[in-house]
Design a protein around this nucleic acid. Structure first.
Lengths: 135, 135
DNA sequence: CTGCGTGCAAATAGTTTGCAGTTCA
DNA sequence: TGAACTGCAAACTATTTGCACGCAG
């Protein structure tokens, strides 16, 4: 229903760096944090480029994007397995756990269907305080 | 764990108008749309006040807030029954259906618990195309 | 070569804040 | 009366866009 795939574009130094960092961190980061980290490690990448690259990656489905309750965007390289899942995020330290819930997935579709909605999608985020922060 | 309730504040003309409109519309609106509608119907309310009132209502739990995938905030007077629920939103026309899923609620808590997360909360939105828009 | 990609600065858009005047209790 | 509320304009923040230059293919 959505054959997005190519969207690769050129292989530039900055794109490589952004992607590399995303793979290393393997956690949610805002575009700004990402940009900051890149500069720290010496990579000369403009904030603009970070945004543009991220946008590209999200469009091609290589990166997941969410929003903080505060509204800022968070990016993470996780759909690498192209596998749909959700996140359990610590509201204190941000530690994230990937979770799945096939039953829940089915439930959302069933509900949407019962109300006559098609082409269903959903977003689910679970927030909590992780054991380390709770202490 | 959270006995929020009072937070009423003063009863002013503008607050009354905002609340009245929210009750009438009973659907998700952005602060700006709300402001626009208020002006149309002659109510003289400043955008600033709309934002401040909405913030107040959200804090006191009288109003629900979400975000468009685009990032803007949406407000709706629905937790009136103080009952936790979610929404099934048409991505075309915005038509919204309130839904519940006790089993799903329990599931999120169980998952969070298994990972040692406490003080759990979650957000879930289901997007789809309603029957009217699908035609 | 030649057009996609980059980065700076300026532009947006939504939301918040400072402050003086207004109003509810 | 006097603290809470209002509204305008200015401030902010995150993100986007215009444009000239540089580099991948």
């Amino acid at each position: 229903m959505n054959g997005s795939r190519p969207a690769a574009g050129r292989t530039t130094r900055q794109r490589t760096e952004v992607i590399a960092l995303l793979q290393e961190v393997n956690d949610f980061l805002t575009a700004q944090q990402l940009h900051g980290l890149l500069r720290e490690r010496g990579a000369k990448v403009g904030l603009t480029t970070v945004y543009r690259t991220l946008q590209l990656l999200v469009d091609s489905g290589e990166v997941d994007a969410t929003r903080l309750p505060d509204g800022e965007q968070l990016f993470r390289q996780c759909s690498r397995s192209r596998h749909h899942h959700h996140h359990l995020v610590c509201r204190m330290c941000g530690r994230t756990v990937e979770i799945e819930g096939p039953a829940m997935e089915r439930w959302t579709e069933k509900v949407a269907d019962q109300h006559g909605y098609t082409d269903v999608a959903h977003t689910l985020e679970i927030f909590g305080t992780c054991s380390a922060c709770a202490r």
